[in-house]
């Protein structure tokens, strides 16, 4: 029980610190959120970005995912089946 309260205090401390930092910082933002009434979705724009500007990270990520999957299978499979 003592442990949990300590954890809670720490978590609250962390929250307080970060929240204070967030509140006291002046964030630079645009004045008005861009609105596209005709098409509310920005999927298309994201898709274009992924396949133009971020195509190399995208490809790398695919390899990472693949290797993670293979690794996961290898670990999870264990030695039983061999």
């Amino acid at each position: 029980m003592l442990n949990k309260s300590i954890n809670a205090v720490v978590a609250l401390l962390f929250f307080a610190v970060v929240a204070l930092a967030v509140v006291s910082t002046t964030w630079v933002t645009v004045d008005e959120l861009p609105q596209n009434v005709a098409d509310q979705s920005n999927i298309e724009a994201i898709g274009v970005l992924i396949f133009t500007q971020f195509v190399i990270p995208f490809e790398v990520l695919s390899i990472v995912l693949l290797s993670a999957l293979i690794g996961a299978i290898y670990i999870a499979k264990g030695e039983v089946e061999q």
């Binding site: 994201i46 971020f54 990520l61 995912l65």
Partner: peptide
């Protein structure tokens, strides 16, 4: 969104995948 820069959202997609 608040900086009108789409790359952040692209990164989120990557991050979800990771």
């Amino acid at each position: 969104s608040y900086n009108d820069d789409m790359s952040g959202q692209v990164f989120v997609l990557f991050s979800i995948a990771l």
